Lab assay of single mutants.
Amino acid sequence: YKIYPYDSLIVTNSISVKLPKDVDRTRLERHLSPEEFQEVFGMSIEEFDRLALWKRNDLKKKALLF
């Protein structure tokens, strides 16, 4: 996945969300650098992957990456 800054990946309720063209809309968190991922989620990507799907989705919603 290509890395993008968190600010360019957050999704708000506005209709005209302009995400970069090559971003996987269903896995926005994968486009964060490991350092920024840790900062946003408070855990590593590996720890995040071990969580239940509902928990990952809940965290993504709170981080505006859903």
Results as ranks from 00 to 15, higher is better:
Ser16Thr: 12
Trp54Phe: 09
Ala52Glu: 13
Tyr4Ala: 02
Leu64Asn: 12
Ala52Asn: 09
Phe41Ala: 00
Phe37Leu: 02
Thr26Asp: 13
Leu32Ile: 07
Gly42Asn: 13
Arg27Tyr: 07
Leu53Phe: 10
Val40His: 09
Glu29Cys: 02
Lys2Leu: 09
Gly42Lys: 14
Ser44Gly: 12
Thr12Gly: 13
Arg50Val: 12
Ile15Cys: 15
Lys21Glu: 15
Ala63Asp: 01
Asp24Ile: 07
Lys60Ser: 02
Phe66His: 08
Ile15Gln: 15
Arg30Trp: 03
Gln38Asn: 13
Ile45Asp: 04
Met43Ala: 02
Leu9Tyr: 00
Asn13Gln: 10
Leu28Ile: 06
Ile10Ser: 04
Tyr6Val: 03
Glu35Gly: 09
Tyr1Gln: 09
Ser14Tyr: 04
Pro20Met: 05
Leu64Arg: 14
His31Lys: 01
Ile10Gly: 02
Asp7Gly: 12
Ala63Ile: 03
Gly42Trp: 06
Glu47Pro: 03
Pro5Gln: 05
Ala52Met: 08
Asp7Glu: 15
Leu28Trp: 03
Lys55Ile: 13
Leu28Gly: 01
Thr26Gln: 13
Thr12Trp: 15
Phe66Asn: 06
Met43Leu: 07
Thr12Tyr: 15
Arg25Thr: 10
Tyr6Asn: 01
Glu29His: 02
Lys60Phe: 02
Ser8Arg: 14
Met43Pro: 00
Ala63Trp: 04
Leu59Arg: 03
Thr12Asp: 11
Thr12Glu: 09
Asp22Phe: 05
Tyr4Gly: 01
His31Ala: 02
Phe41Arg: 00
Glu29Ile: 01
Ser44Trp: 06
Ile45His: 08
Gln38Glu: 10
Lys2Ala: 14
Ser44Lys: 13
Asp7Met: 15
Leu65Ala: 01
Val17Gly: 15
Glu39Met: 15
Asp49Gly: 08
Phe37Asp: 00
Leu51Trp: 02
Val17Thr: 14
Lys18Asp: 15
Glu39Gly: 11
Ile15Ala: 15
Asp22Ala: 05
Val23Leu: 06
Asp7Lys: 15
Tyr4Ile: 06
Leu9Gln: 00
Ser8Gln: 15
Asn13Lys: 09
Ser8Ala: 14
Glu46Met: 12
Tyr4Ser: 01
Lys2His: 10
Asp22Met: 04
Glu29Ala: 01
Arg25Leu: 12
Arg30Val: 05
Ile10Ala: 06
Ile3His: 07
Ile15Asp: 15
Lys55Asp: 09
Asp22Asn: 07
Glu35Trp: 10
Glu47Asp: 11
Glu35Leu: 11
Gly42His: 13
Glu46Val: 13
Ser14Phe: 06
Leu51Met: 09
His31Gly: 01
Val17Leu: 08
Leu64Ser: 10
Ser33Glu: 04
Val17Asp: 15
Leu51Ala: 04
Asn57His: 08
Ser44Ile: 09
Thr26Arg: 11
Thr26Ser: 13
Lys60Met: 03
Lys62Phe: 06
Lys60Thr: 02
Pro34His: 11
Lys61Arg: 12
Lys18Pro: 14
Tyr1Asp: 07
Thr12Ser: 13
Arg30Ile: 04
Ile15Glu: 15
Pro20Cys: 04
Ile15Val: 14
Leu28Met: 05
Val11Trp: 08
Lys61Met: 10
Asp49Ala: 07
Ser16His: 14
Pro5Glu: 05
Ala52Phe: 07
Lys61Cys: 09
Thr12Leu: 14
Ile3Glu: 07
Asp49Tyr: 09
Asp22Leu: 04
Leu65Val: 03
Val11Cys: 10
Ser44Asp: 14
Leu64Lys: 14
Lys2Tyr: 07
Ala52Lys: 09
Pro34Val: 15
Pro5His: 04
Val40Phe: 04
Met43Cys: 07
Gly42Pro: 00
Val11Tyr: 08
Arg27His: 15
Leu28Asn: 01
Phe48Ile: 00
Tyr6Ser: 01
Leu51Asp: 02
Ile3Asp: 03
Asn57Cys: 09
Glu29Gly: 00
Ser8Leu: 15
Glu29Gln: 02
Glu46Arg: 10
Arg25Gln: 12
Ile10Glu: 02
Phe48Ser: 00
Ser8Glu: 14
Ser8Val: 14
Thr12Val: 11
Lys60Asp: 00
Leu32Val: 03
Val40Ala: 05
Val23Gly: 02
Lys62Cys: 08
Gln38Ile: 11
Ser44Ala: 13
Trp54Asn: 12
Gln38Ala: 12
Arg30Asp: 02
Leu59Trp: 03
Leu28Asp: 00
Arg25Asp: 07
Leu19Cys: 06
Asn57Gly: 05
Arg56Pro: 01
Asn57Glu: 09
Leu19Val: 07
Phe48Thr: 00
Glu39His: 13
Arg50Gln: 14
Val23Ser: 03
His31Glu: 01
Asp22Trp: 06
Trp54Ile: 08
Asp7Gln: 15
Val40Leu: 06
Lys55Ala: 10
Val40Lys: 06
Thr26Glu: 14
Thr26Phe: 14
Pro34Lys: 15
Arg27Pro: 01
Leu9Asp: 01
Trp54Leu: 08
Ser14Trp: 06
Lys55Val: 13
Phe48Gly: 00
Ile45Gly: 06
Glu36Gly: 05
Glu47Asn: 10
Ser33Arg: 05
Arg56Leu: 02
Pro34Ile: 14
Asp49Ile: 04
Asn13His: 10
Arg30Pro: 01
Phe41Glu: 00
Ile45Met: 09
Val40Ile: 10
Leu9Cys: 02
Lys55Cys: 10
Lys55Tyr: 10
Phe37Arg: 00
Glu35Lys: 14
Leu28Ser: 02
Glu47Lys: 09
Ala63Thr: 06
Glu29Arg: 01
Ala63Leu: 06
Arg30Lys: 09
Lys2Met: 09
Asn13Ile: 06
Lys2Thr: 14
Val11Met: 11
Leu32Cys: 01
Asp22Pro: 03
Tyr1Ala: 10
Asp58Arg: 11
Glu46Trp: 10
Leu59Ser: 03
Ala63Arg: 06
Lys55His: 11
Phe37Cys: 03
Leu32Gly: 00
Ser14Arg: 10
Gly42Ser: 12
Thr26Trp: 10
Leu51Gly: 02
Phe66Pro: 04
Val23Lys: 01
Glu36Gln: 11
Trp54His: 11
Trp54Lys: 10
Lys60Val: 03
Asp49Trp: 06
Asn13Glu: 11
Leu59Phe: 05
Leu53Ile: 10
Lys18Val: 14
Ile10His: 04
Asp7Val: 15
Glu46Phe: 11
Lys18Glu: 15
Phe48His: 00
Glu35Phe: 11
Glu35Arg: 11
Gln38Cys: 10
Gln38Thr: 10
Tyr1Ser: 08
Arg27Glu: 05
Lys55Glu: 14
His31Thr: 01
Val23Pro: 02
Asp22Lys: 03
Ser14Asn: 14
Lys18Thr: 15
Ile45Val: 09
Phe37Ile: 02
Phe48Glu: 00
Lys21Asp: 15
Lys62Met: 10
Phe37Lys: 00
Glu36Val: 08
Phe41Trp: 01
Lys21Thr: 13
Leu53Arg: 09
Tyr6Pro: 01
Leu64His: 13
Ser44Val: 13
Leu28Arg: 05
Lys60Ile: 03
Lys61Pro: 00
Asp22Cys: 06
Ser44Phe: 09
Val17Gln: 15
Lys60Cys: 02
Leu64Gly: 11
Leu28Lys: 03
Leu19Trp: 09
Leu59Ala: 06
Lys62His: 08
Tyr6Cys: 02
Lys62Thr: 09
Pro20Trp: 04
Arg50Trp: 06
Lys60Leu: 05
Ile15Ser: 15
Lys60Pro: 00
Pro5Phe: 03
Pro34Arg: 13
Phe41His: 00
Pro5Gly: 05
Asp22Gly: 08
Pro5Cys: 04
Asn13Gly: 13
Arg30Met: 07
Trp54Gly: 09
Pro5Lys: 05
Glu47Trp: 07
Gln38Leu: 14
Pro34Ala: 13
Lys21Asn: 14
Lys21Gly: 13
Phe41Ile: 04
Glu29Trp: 02
Arg30Thr: 03
Glu47Thr: 10
Thr12Lys: 10
Pro34Glu: 12
Val17Tyr: 03
Asp58Phe: 13
Tyr4Lys: 02
Lys60Glu: 01
Glu39Tyr: 13
Tyr1His: 14
Thr26Cys: 15
Pro20Gln: 04
Ser14Val: 11
Lys61Ile: 10
Phe66Arg: 04
Leu65Glu: 01
Glu39Leu: 14
Phe66Asp: 07
Leu19Ala: 06
Pro20Phe: 04
Leu51Phe: 06
Lys62Val: 09
Glu36His: 05
Tyr1Glu: 07
Ile15Phe: 09
Lys61Thr: 08
Asp7Cys: 15
Val40Asp: 00
Asp49His: 07
Phe37Tyr: 02
Ile3Met: 06
Pro20Arg: 04
Thr12Ala: 11
Thr12Asn: 10
Leu32Lys: 00
Gly42Cys: 10
Leu28Cys: 02
Met43Trp: 02
Leu51Val: 04
Asp24Pro: 02
Glu47Arg: 08
Gln38Tyr: 14
Trp54Tyr: 10
Ile15His: 15
His31Val: 01
Tyr1Val: 14
Ile15Trp: 06
Glu29Pro: 01
Arg27Ala: 11
Asn13Ala: 12
Ala63Lys: 09
Ser33Ala: 11
Val23Met: 04
Leu19Gln: 06
Ser14Ile: 11
Val40Ser: 03
Gln38Asp: 11
Lys2Trp: 05
Asp58Thr: 11
Pro34Met: 12
Lys18Gln: 15
Glu47Ala: 12
Pro34Tyr: 11
Pro20Leu: 06
Leu51Thr: 04
Asn13Arg: 09
Arg27Met: 09
Asn57Tyr: 07
Arg56Tyr: 02
Phe66Tyr: 15
Lys2Pro: 15
Asp7Tyr: 14
Arg50Asn: 11
Ile10Cys: 07
Leu59Tyr: 05
Lys61Val: 09
Glu35Met: 11
Gly42Ala: 11
Val23Gln: 02
Leu19Met: 08
Ala52Arg: 08
Asp49Pro: 01
Glu35Cys: 08
